[in-house]
């Protein structure tokens, strides 16, 4: 029976080997299955690419929106140019009306002081018998001459900017802003000086606003 036991042991060993071989085969079998799954995924990607339905639709949408946007932009640009051209004269007239009389008044100051200063001494004495008045006139002319035309325009522009930031009525703020400017103060100085010499008759434009 000892020999019989030996044979049984051998049989058991063979049995184990067989089981291992089966396991290996199972593993090999499962691997092709995984490969198949990968291929299936690849096929899905390919199908997605090939069909191109969502991607293609998206591209078409973008192209169409781009085209619409281009036409809208062209119309917008042309519309701005046309609108600006149609309103330019009206805007100009508004601005011109707001500034022409202020400029005129300052021009009066400049003209009067310059003309008086340019007179020969004998004529100056006839218009301003008082020597002190003549001195004050010369001082005033010097102050006026220090302000160039560019300076005056800049001062006016700044006063307009200040008034445009105010919530008051435009006319009121324009008047007040102008009053606060150096141009206005020199205008008042001239009016005061001329009051001392009734023979000099100046435009009502100058005295009216003071």
């Amino acid at each position: 029976m000892a020999g019989s036991e030996d044979l049984s042991g051998l049989t058991a060993s063979l049995g184990e080997l067989h089981v291992e071989s089966s396991a290996l085969k199972d593993s090999e079998i499962s691997h092709p299955g995984n490969a198949f799954d990968d291929d299936a995924i690849a096929d899905d990607d390919v199908w997605d690419d090939v069909s191109d339905s969502p991607g293609h639709g998206s591209t078409l949408d973008r192209e169409w929106a781009h085209r619409q946007n281009q036409f809208h932009k062209m119309g917008y640009r042309d519309g701005i140019a046309e609108g600006q051209k149609d309103i330019a004269q009206e805007g100009f007239n508004v601005g011109f009306g707001q500034s022409v009389h202020v400029g005129y008044k300052w021009g009066l100051v400049r003209g009067i002081t310059s003309a008086l200063a340019s007179l020969p001494d004998n004529l100056k004495e006839k218009m301003f018998p008082n020597v002190q008045c003549r001195g004050q006139l010369q001082d005033l002319n010097n102050s006026v001459q220090e302000i160039s035309a560019e300076d005056a325009l800049q001062m006016f522009h700044e006063s307009i900017l200040r008034s445009s930031h105010s919530s008051e009525e435009p006319d009121a703020t324009l008047k007040r802003a102008t009053d606060s400017s150096r141009l206005q103060s020199l205008s008042k100085d001239l009016v005061i000086l001329l009051h001392e010499c009734p023979d000099v008759k100046v435009s009502e434009e100058l005295t009216g606003d003071s």
């Binding site: 100009f92 601005g95 500034s99 022409v100 021009g107």
Partner: peptide, 29 residues
């Protein structure tokens, strides 16, 4: 466009007014 036109008008109006006022001032004297 209206604001741009107004700015040009402001400048031009002041300049025109000043020049005419100058001549008028000299004339007054």
């Amino acid at each position: 466009g209206k604001e741009e036109g107004r700015q040009v008008g402001l400048k031009n109006g002041f300049q025109v007014g000043e020049e005419l006022g100058f001549y008028q001032g000299c004339l007054d004297v």
